[in-house]
Amino acid sequence: MRRRLITTAAVVGLLIGSVSLFAHHGNAEFDIGKRVTVKGTVTRWSWSNPHCFLTFDVNGDNGAVVHWVVETQPPRSVTAGGFSQYTFKPGDEVTVTLEPVKNGRPLGRMLEVVLPNGKKMVTGHLD
């Protein structure tokens, strides 16, 4: 039984991890293939459709604060990766790896996030 459970978990994990879930829109906004990793303080976690989004402030080199907004997939999809309505709270220190938009604004879609407790979580965009 244990072996079957492990096999099942592996298969399910592979299936969930290998599919990009584009429930609402495609890739037109994004600079495909580019990666940005930033560390910041959570200001808001919106658990909503068509996309959940996380906002956080990052202290820039010159002392200016950059306010980032990164979307994820909708609740229905990110729950497969372990996210919930309560994954983030304001004040959390997080490290976010994201795919930025093309126009240079501090916007993107979340690929990975490291929570304050060191736990790394990935979204459905990841392979």
């Binding site: 940005v36 930033v38 990052v58 820039g60 950059v66 930025p100 938009v101 126009n103 240079g104 604004r105």
Partner: peptide
């Protein structure tokens, strides 16, 4: 939007 580069 056309945007203005603000990403680090």
């Amino acid at each position: 939007s056309a945007g203005k580069a603000k990403q680090p």
